[in-house]
Design a protein around this nucleic acid. Sequence first.
DNA 1: AAGGTGACCGGCC
DNA 2: TGGCCGGCCACCT
Length: 114
Amino acid sequence: MTKTSDNFFERVYAVARQIPYGKVTSYGAIARALGTARSARMVGWAMNAAHNLEDVPAHRVVNRKGLLTGKHHFDGTNLMQQLLESEGIVIEDNQIIDLEKHFWEPEIRIYFCE
DNA sequence: AAGGTGACCGGCC
DNA sequence: TGGCCGGCCACCT
């Protein structure tokens, strides 16, 4: 909280929490929203801790190609896919079909207002 | 304190 | 998007 690092995680969580139902976004998009476009990897790392929090729908976050890269980190191997399919998202071979159709980009303006 | 790591991205072949 | 390489930034041991 007092540490800046926690602030960074908080921002990642804040973005993920705002992902609408039935929509998905990419790590890079979140990183861009935070102003740290080059630390997309860090976003994934934050997600690692975020998936522990039920407030953060980490299953709605995929990589740029729409690949469910993080599904391996969930409880089940296909739990992430099941969740996304439950939201109306079509997934084939761990990959989201019509990614742009379900893609949602976070609003940057919110996170610059500190 | 330093090194290794990672749920990535973009560029190039 | 098929595959490989480099960069990048914060976290962990």
